[in-house]
Amino acid sequence: MTLLDAIGLRYAWPGTEAAAARAPGQRREALAGASLAVRPGVRLALLGGNGSGKSTLLLHLNGTLRPASGEVRWQGQPIDYSRRGLAALRQAVALVFQDPDDQLFAGTLAQDVSFGPLNLGLDPAEVARRVAAALAAVGLEALGALPPHMLSHGQRKRAAIAGALAMRPAMLVLDEPTAGLDPAGIDILLDHLDALHAQGMTVVFSTHDLLLARHWADEVAVLHQGRVIAHGGAAAVLDDAPVIAAAGLRPRRFADGRRPVSSPSWPGVSRPSTPHRRSADGRDTPGHDELAAPDGAAAAPLRRERPPHG
C-alpha cells in the first residue's frame, strides 16, 4: 500500500524549449517520465544532482505543478486539480521550499503560520492553537511576534516548516531542507523532523548530501535527468556505486579516494612556489602534478609546526 504515487511524470518549464534549441546539451524536460512511490510513515530521500528534476518532482507531489503527461495518485486516487481538490490535497501533503523566502510573506511568524490553517476554514481559536503548537514543534515559540526578515536563515527554514505543520499534513515534503545550514542548524532541524516522524508523519526530502541520506533516510530514490533511476532501502541504493556515479552524486576527483593528479590552470593565475614547465608547444603549464605521488596518495606527510616555546 502506498500513500502517494507519481507515475511517468513529464514536465517542461516554460521557456526551456527555446533554451534547449540554442544549447544542444540543455534538457528540454525537467521531468522525463519520473515515477516514485511513497509508502506511509517512511523517510524518503530524493537524491540527485543539480538540474536532475528533484524540485520539479516535489512540486508535483501536492499539485503545485501539473504534469504534461503521467499522473500523481494520492492514496490510490488520481489528484483532483479542481480548487476544492487541491485544497484537500495541500492539507494532506505540505510542501516546504528550499528558500524559505519563497513562502514566508506575512508580517510576523505567527501570522505566516496561521495562513494555511485559515485557508482550511478553521475558526480563529483553533488556528491560534495550531500556530502555537507548530511554532513549538520547531522551537520558535518565543519568536512568533517577529517578522521573518529579523530571523536567521536556519530559523526561517524552521518557520517555513512550522507553516507546513500547522496544516497537520500526513506527508511533509521538504526541498533541500539542510541547504545553507551549518552542522548545528542541521542537527536542530533533524531533531525536529525526528520528532515529527516519530509521530507517524511521512517525510520526503530532496538533497544531494549522501551522508544525510545514509544516516537519516529509510529509503532513497535517485533522480537523474528527470527520471528516477533507483529506489530502495537507503544502504542498498547508496552502496550501488554505478547508480551514484551515473547520477553525478560523488565528485569525480573523490570517487576513488585519491588526490587529484593535476589542477586546472586558470588564465593569469600562477603559483610562484610551484615550478612551471614549458610544454612542447611552448605553453607554460603549472607543475602541480609533481606534488602528487605517482600512486595518487598524499604527496607529503602532514607536518606540524613545533611551538616556539617548548
Binding site: L59, N62, T64, R83, L86, A87, R90, Q91, A94, L95, F97, D99, D101, D102, Q103, F105, A106, G107, T108, A110, Q111, D112, S114, F115, G116, L118, N119, L120, P124, V127, A128, V131, A145, G163, A164, M167
Partner: peptide
C-alpha cells in the same frame, strides 16, 4: 523572479485569492 516564486510558494500553501492571517497579539 521573486514574485513568481512567492506565488508558487503561496499556491503550495493553499492560496487562492486571499491572504488571511490572524491578527497579532
Amino acid at each position: 523572479d521573486r514574485a513568481a516564486r512567492l506565488e508558487r510558494g503561496l499556491a503550495a500553501r493553499g492560496y487562492v485569492d486571499r491572504l488571511p492571517v490572524l491578527p497579532p497579539d
